[in-house]
Amino acid sequence: MNNFPKVILASKSPRRQELLRLMDIDFRIVLKEVDESYPDGLSPEEIAVYIATKKAEAFDEDVTNEVVLTADTIVSIDGEILGKPETPEHAVEMLHKLSGKVHKVYTGVCLFYKGEYNKFYDVSEVFFRQLTDEEIRSYVADKSPMDKAGSYGIQERIGLIGIERINGSYTNVVGLPTEKVYQQLKRLAV
């Protein structure tokens, strides 16, 4: 077991929760509603960090000796930001855009601890093979891409059959760059 401060995970993502459990990090979940809009003109990494920071700022008055961990993941392809799909058809449209191409996944993280905002991000390149319309529609019908940036989970069927390779952190694509989070929590524990 580590000697990290207790962590508040401000995320309903089951994937982020599972990653923290696998890292043997003691945490509890506290959720707050946050407007996830962002100003125009930001780069993808700036958007991810901006939203993660907004989520942490919602805890500004509430926390004492715990680390608030917030994160936001976005997908970027050809200069376009792909957030979470609004409808199943929107999910199909997004997956067609990603099919046969390389895109980038950015996860912004903010660790709010003792009045300080420790902000960072990670980026991974994801190479999708050409997907058939049937593979895409079957995934959208069977799984729930609605809560995932870019309409897919790398750990789900579409990722298992469609992703040829990645450059960068796998866990970043899942939704939390665990290697960087661990190192930052270690630094805060000193």
Rank of each mutant, 00 (worst) to 15 (best):
V67L: 13
D142C: 09
D142T: 00
N3K: 13
N2W: 13
Q183V: 03
K148C: 04
Q130A: 12
P5Q: 10
V105S: 06
K55M: 08
E135S: 10
I29T: 15
T171D: 11
K12G: 11
E89V: 02
V34Q: 06
Y117P: 11
A189I: 13
I8T: 13
E18S: 15
D40M: 07
G115V: 04
I8F: 00
F128Q: 02
D142G: 04
S43Y: 05
N118D: 14
V140K: 05
N167Y: 01
N118Q: 09
E135G: 08
L69G: 05
L188G: 05
R165Q: 12
E135L: 09
I29W: 02
Y38G: 04
P44H: 03
L188S: 06
S76F: 00
A71Y: 00
G83I: 01
R28Y: 00
I8H: 03
T87D: 11
A71C: 10
Q17L: 15
V7T: 12
L188K: 06
V7C: 09
L176A: 09
E164K: 14
S169K: 05
E36L: 09
L42Q: 06
K97W: 05
E86T: 08
M94A: 05
Q183M: 11
A71H: 09
G153P: 06
S151G: 05
Y152N: 01
H103N: 12
P88G: 03
Y182D: 00
E164W: 01
S37T: 03
I154H: 04
Q17A: 13
A56F: 04
M94S: 04
K180S: 10
D72L: 14
N118W: 05
L160Q: 10
G83N: 03
A91P: 02
D142M: 08
E45T: 15
D62T: 15
E18Q: 13
L31N: 11
G168D: 13
I136G: 11
E86V: 12
P145D: 06
D142E: 14
I74H: 00
Q130R: 13
S76V: 14
L98M: 06
I77H: 01
Y106C: 13
E46C: 13
D147E: 04
L20G: 02
G100K: 10
A149V: 04
G175C: 11
A71M: 12
A189P: 02
V123L: 01
P5S: 06
E89A: 05
T107F: 03
T73A: 12
G153S: 09
D26M: 15
